[in-house]
Nucleic acid binder design. Structure first.
Lengths: 334, 334
DNA sequence: CTGAGGCATGGAACCGGTTCCCTTCAAGCC
DNA sequence: GGCTTGAAGGGAACCGGTTCCATGCCTCAG
């Protein structure tokens, strides 16, 4: 692999001039620039990123911290972030860190300070005070997604409102016995957004005077999790709910599958609404609150770029809209 | 952020000694080592990765190229790779590149040569001759997953055998009209593994003298793709198949959902077998050929480490086993 | 007593870029 | 004609580490 010294020698100029010619900073004559460029072309020269990073102080890379990779929301988000960063010429360095794991400490203590990232995108992670302090030492701008952090820029939807609107949709259809499906009651592992969605559901129930009928069938925010929670909720024939609000579409779809299995007609006997507009939602005719994780990812990149270009700029929090998409999994209560 | 010069000054030694004390290479007295270590501790010193990389020639990072992030197999794989790399102290730099996109050229021309990766993991990508040449210039070892590349180390399952065994399972149950569900007929976008699975299905059909009954309901290798293909295949009431082999579990589950929708009893009237053992397979009681993408990911890391430690070592191809998991989506033909 | 060899350390070169600063030269202006 | 100004480009410092080499000391064998 050739270095800039090779290019300079071949073009008959100094390293300094070669660097200026290729980067476009400083004065270089038209003719010299062309000579350097073709020399670089001939040697198929590509600048060494570490050397560049060391000299300029910018690494052209962004660290991305994710609590999980195998759920739809996070995978879509990651895809959006990746596309955005790649388009801007930044590399994405991925850390998949389960909440509260030992690796998490190592990440904050050693890994993040070692690479000087130009920026950090943290997804669904509520950094502890100590971790936040470590992040600030690194001095790279942070954008969090779905975590409502105060000090940093942030992207999210209004989880509270989304769940409230979904629940109101069911209430408007005449439903009274509405169960919230999925989500862990344990606060430590409960994703922040899930907690807010549960609160939104509770608020809607309370506003309709249905406080005492509110019920949470806990479970993992996944299809099997929703399935199991639904089986439990539907098990009692005497007091069967007439509608589900899923903590996410995966849980809601689990509920749909469970209902079908138990011979309960979705819509006619049981309305189900989710939150996400998952790629499978349409297939299951699921009514849901649409959010667009890919868009959230690319918005996060946009916010990050803004802060990288001007570190003095104040952090910006944006809340993306989510809208009710009515399909045929919801119908009037009987 | 402090540098090694700060640490050296605080410990009262030279940069050289400080470096040796911290890295453990070369002679340093016990007492000096301790002094340097506590100086580093007090300054919360962390070595600058670019400087280290420039000096040593090793970047402690691995490039990972993936064709998609939103499918279960790839997400699981990525999780396995990520865990493996993190445990070994390597960073994962992610590139999500759609087959044949413009970004792909940029990746091979500029991005990969710029960063000097210590290794590259390419998933489901068949590099062109020109791309392979670029990869070799970079001189970092490559491990491919699921792509059967000759020059490089590789990890995969035997896709051909997996589909053959799945199909034989159905034939043994007395099925004759077996449709292969999902997978794109277009060779350019058809993932290599999907093609091999189709071939395995065809071979099993041929071996049982069922060549003329073999039928491929094409579609995306996803749940909606399988759903649509199944609806088409089940549409003709006169010639309804008695069994599906899904190109993957997602397609197979799409088939199960389609059958339920159409009022066709899975197992009793229609057997369905998939390939993957997807996280949702159990929920749908799907009989399937189990493969473990996480394991494939960590094995890929192991192979990569082997080649990084000894570049002269010959590339190693390993084929991981896949086994038939019989659940209740398959039954004797009527 | 001398020389060899292991240990401990410091100085300086080096990795491959970028950028500051200085020199040169030509054009423009008073 | 002398001075200012700006373009063009070279030398060298610098980013923050690692490592080669030289030096001094101590021990031990001959």
């Amino acid at each position: 692999m050739s270095t800039i010294a090779d290019v300079a020698a071949r073009a008959g100029v100094s390293k300094a001039t070669a660097s200026r010619a290729l980067s476009g900073h400083g004065y270089v004559s038209e003719e010299t620039r062309d000579r350097v460029r073709s020399a670089a072309e001939e040697l198929s020269y590509v600048a060494h990123s570490s050397a560049m990073s060391l000299a300029t102080g910018r690494s052209l890379s962004v660290g991305v911290i994710m609590p999980s990779l195998d759920r739809w929301f996070f995978a879509e988000l990651l895809a959006g972030v990746q596309e955005g960063l790649f388009a801007e010429g930044y590399d994405l360095v991925l850390y998949g860190i389960r909440e509260g794991s030992a690796e998490r400490a190592r990440l904050f203590e050693r890994i993040l300070p070692r690479r000087r990232f130009d920026g950090i995108i943290a997804v669904g992670i509520q950094p502890s005070a100590h971790e936040l302090e470590r992040l600030l030492r690194v001095e790279s701008p942070v954008v969090s997604i779905g975590a409502y952090s105060e000090g940093t820029s942030a992207v999210s939807i209004d989880d509270f409102a989304a769940a409230r609107i979904a629940t109101e949709h069911l209430i408007d259809l005449g439903h009274r016995d509405i169960v919230f499906l999925g989500g862990q009651p344990d606060a430590a592992t409960h994703a922040v957004g899930d907690r807010r969605r549960l609160d939104g559901y509770l608020a809607a129930m309370a506003a309709a005077g249905l406080d005492d009928r509110a019920q949470h069938a806990a479970g993992a925010p996944t299809m099997p999790g929703g399935y199991e929670a639904a089986v439990r909720a539907l098990g009692d024939r005497r007091q069967r709910p007439s509608a589900f609000v899923g903590v996410c579409d995966e849980a809601a779809i689990g509920g749909v599958v469970a209902a079908r299995r138990l011979g309960i007609a979705v819509a006619a006997e049981l309305s189900v609404v989710g939150i996400d507009d998952h790629q499978h939602a349409e297939m299951f005719s699921l009514t849901t609150m649409r959010q667009q994780p890919r868009l959230q990812g690319s918005e996060a990149v946009r916010l990050l770029r803004a802060r990288m270009d001007d570190p003095a700029a104040p952090p910006e929090q944006i809340v993306l809209p989510s809208e009710l998409v009515v399909r045929s999994s919801t119908a009037n209560a009987r």
